[in-house]
Structure formats: structure tokens, C-alpha cells
Design a protein around this nucleic acid. Structure first.
Lengths: 142, 142
DNA sequence: CCTGTGTCTACAGTTGCTATAGATTACTTG
DNA sequence: CAAGTAATCTATAGCAACTGTAGACACAGG
């Protein structure tokens, strides 16, 4: 029987996070000692490991809830699981694309910062009136 | 003189967000009409555009506060501005790297999902006991 | 039995907004 | 100029996904 701190260490989770998962119904209410402390078994360890690994892969707690529900009904089609993973992959790809654009712009900004006084710092200038971006944004709002 | 809604449209910001920025001291308290509505000038428009563009580049509100402070003291060295941008770039690069690892793993996971029943779904299996990742995580915690 | 570390509950705080309610103001149209 | 409707006002609560705090209690080793 594992105390909450042991479970936390084994899965790389904070103690409070485990209690939080219990509170939102992602982890079951475990057994308690006479004194009221939580004690966990291997099933809970596995479940928490599943949750943490999924979180590391960027799945939302809601998505994880879905995955856990699906894995509890082993007769159902794998297609639903696949769909969730596909959705996650798409989101990750979009995030990468955005960050790459951003990286390019930051790099250009830094490269152009040849001056040494704030008064004519290119970085601040770029941030101040990057007209193109503003226009793009306004356009997107319509 | 611009009403808050006009300012919002011009910068691609929600009205509440502008009031929020005022509340946390990122935007100044503007003048008001007799009836108590906010009215803005071009200086505020520029400041908000700067904030929004910086946000799009992933700067935190705290970093933006720093940048705004720096740009108000035009005699100071550009090095501080450069340092903030460098820090931001480094963070972006780290985020990209993490997401790329994640993308690889998701792709592999999906590719291996050849079965059609949840009972032997590779995705769930991978999520369940990806022992290696868990170990990495525990190691990282030390 | 004592001490130190772990755990308990409950609640506030984090970041960066977004949403809602109910009242008031400003602009537009007849 | 009245009436309607659109925009604005304040205040407050909510979101995700935790993290941190305080003060009280439990447990294990020597």
C-alpha cells in the first residue's frame, strides 16, 4: 500500500495534483488508513502513470477522461481512440507551425538590433508598429 | 477621441481585455466622458498595438511591462531589450523542440494502431506503460 | 515516548483572459 | 426632440491545470 507521497514520487506528480485529480473525478477515491490518510494500490499507480504520460503528450484532462472511459470498454472500436489521437496530433502540428513563424520573427528582430541605445532599438520598433501583423489580425476578426 | 470598442476593433482586442490591461496597470487610466465612458487617443492606440503584437510573439505580460518601461527610458542600453528578446527566443526554441518530440511519438502511436478493438489498441498501450518516459520524468525531478 | 517528516482539509493565488448581469450612456432614426 | 438600440459601465465569477499556504493531525524510527 502506497502513501500519496510515494505515488507522487513514482509518477513525477505533485501531491496536491493527485488530490486535485481525485477532486475532479479523474482519480478514484482511494482507501484510507485509520488516521484518514490515503493509501493506493498498483491499479491507481497505473492509472496515474497513464494520466501523466498523456498530459506530457499534451492531451487535455477532458481528452484523458475520454481515453480512460474508452479503455474501460474493451469491446468498442479503436477508431474513437484513434480520432482523439489524430485531433491531438493536428493541434500539435498547428502549434509547431505558429511557433516556427514566431521564431523566425524573433531571430530577425534580434539580428537587426545593431544599435546600442534604446532610442533606436530595432526590437522595440518592430514591436511597436508591425503594421502588417496588425492588419492581418484586424482582417482575421472580420 | 476613440471609444473603447473602436480601440478594440483597431487592435484586434476584446473590450474586456483592454479594461483588464488597465486594471493590472499595463494600460493607463484614460480620460472619460461626462457619462463616464473611456476615451482614448493615439498614444494609447500605439501602446495597445505594441502590447498585442508582443503577446502574439509570445511575450508574457511581465516581459511586456519590462519592454514598455525600457522604451520609456531612451537613454538606456539596448542590451536589456536584446536580453529579453533572447530569453523569449530561447523559450520558443525549447517549446518547439518539445512539441516535435511529442509529434514524433503521436505519429508513431497512430501508425501502430492497426487493430480495431480497444482491447488491443496500441495507442492506449503506449499511453499506459511508456516506462521509459516515466523514468525520464522521475530522473528529471531530482 | 519523542521527534521529524508526511499528510490532512480548505482555501487563495497563478496567467491571461472571457463571460455574465443589470444598469447607464451615446448615437441614430423618425 | 423622443424613442429605440447599440455600446459602455461596474462588479463578479469562471476557465485550465495546477501550485502554494496555514494550521492541525498521523505515522515511523530510534
Amino acid at each position: 500500500m502506497l502513501a500519496i507521497g510515494t505515488l507522487a514520487k513514482r509518477t513525477g506528480t505533485k501531491v496536491q495534483t493527485i488530490r486535485y485529480y481525485e477532486q475532479i473525478g479523474l482519480m478514484p477515491e482511494p482507501g484510507r488508513t485509520e488516521g484518514g490518510q490515503r493509501r493506493y494500490g498498483n491499479a491507481e499507480l497505473d492509472r496515474l502513470a497513464f494520466i501523466r504520460h498523456s498530459r506530457q503528450l499534451g492531451f487535455s484532462l477532458d481528452a484523458i477522461r475520454e481515453l480512460l472511459d474508452l479503455s474501460d470498454s474493451p469491446g468498442r472500436s479503436c477508431a474513437e481512440v484513434d480520432a482523439i489521437a489524430q485531433r491531438q496530433l493536428r493541434e500539435v502540428e498547428i502549434r509547431i507551425e505558429r511557433l516556427e513563424t514566431l521564431r523566425t520573427e524573433l531571430r530577425r528582430m534580434i539580428a537587426e538590433c545593431g544599435s546600442n541605445r534604446v532610442a533606436d532599438c530595432r526590437i522595440l520598433e518592430v514591436l511597436r508598429d508591425h503594421g502588417q501583423c496588425l492588419t492581418d489580425h484586424v482582417r482575421a476578426e472580420r
